[in-house]
Amino acid sequence: MKKLDDITDLRDAIATHAAASAAGDSAAAEAFVLPQAIETHRHAAAEIARIARPVEVETLALAKIGFQYISKIRFTNGGAMRRVLYRWRKEADGKWVIVSVEDTTGKRSSWSDIPDLAAAVAQARAGNGNA
């Protein structure tokens, strides 16, 4: 039987990042984000910032895909809501970083805007090398 990874430090990073995002603390939230993901992160953060404070944070899912993890977070207050996927990777120094961000608020799934299976496979392979 395979032993499960101890990802307590990842869960802590996710919680810290989500709390900073909910509070509108962009410097603290962006400290987790790699340069290639900063633009999409800022777009998602701008949408989260439109939610009236206080913003509630709910972790919807955490899944391992290859050597990376995907966290699905919902930010809400009253009728306003944003649902965001963050792809996390552990660096050589042990720090967890966000390598991609996708706001899935208006989608049934994160694959909803992929036109066909061939495009989906190509996108997955180009994005992370795990497909």
Rank of each mutant, 00 (worst) to 15 (best):
W88P: 00
H43N: 13
S112G: 03
Y86R: 03
P35G: 07
A118R: 05
S21H: 03
G78H: 02
V84F: 08
H17D: 04
R42K: 11
D5K: 06
S110A: 14
V97A: 07
W96T: 03
D103E: 07
D6S: 09
A46S: 12
F75S: 01
A23M: 09
E58W: 05
M81T: 02
N128K: 05
I38Q: 11
L62G: 15
E39C: 02
A61N: 14
I14H: 04
G79H: 04
A119Q: 12
R11D: 15
L85H: 14
G24H: 12
K95M: 07
W88K: 09
Q123G: 02
R74T: 08
D12N: 13
G79P: 15
D6W: 07
T16M: 09
V84H: 01
T40A: 13
R108G: 05
A119K: 11
D6R: 12
T105L: 01
L62P: 07
A37S: 09
I38M: 14
T40F: 14
K90R: 15
G94V: 00
R82D: 02
K95E: 02
Q36I: 00
E56K: 13
A18V: 00
D6A: 04
K107N: 02
I73L: 03
H17K: 01
E91R: 08
R87A: 10
R89D: 03
A49F: 05
A23K: 11
